[in-house]
Amino acid sequence: MGVEIILKIATIGILIAVVAQVLKQAGKEEIATLTTLAGLVVVLTMVVDMISELFSTVGNLFYLY
């Protein structure tokens, strides 16, 4: 749990941007949007996992549950 998660999400973001750009040049417009969507879903699942961990930590720490 540290910087590597941030860098992982950043690389995914850059990768999606590049792949979408290449696909757009190649004329495959709809596949570009699909790859962007797929990348977003991957990043979203990672961040949702972190958010759920945050909420459980805060719940335990502040007796909130």
């Binding site: 749990m1 540290g2 910087v3 998660i5 941030i6 999400i9 950043a10 995914i12 973001g13 850059i14 999606i16 941007a17 962007t36 990348g39 977003l40 990043v43 979203l44 990672m46 961040v47 972190m50 958010i51 961990e53 945050l54 930590t57 805060v58």
Partner: peptide
């Protein structure tokens, strides 16, 4: 990431603040 993919930039912000909290 912001200029090309603003939504992923926002998610990076969220992830970063969660890590700082942990």
């Amino acid at each position: 990431i912001k200029p090309s993919k603003p939504e992923i930039a926002m998610l990076i912000g969220v992830a970063g603040s969660i890590i700082v909290f942990l």
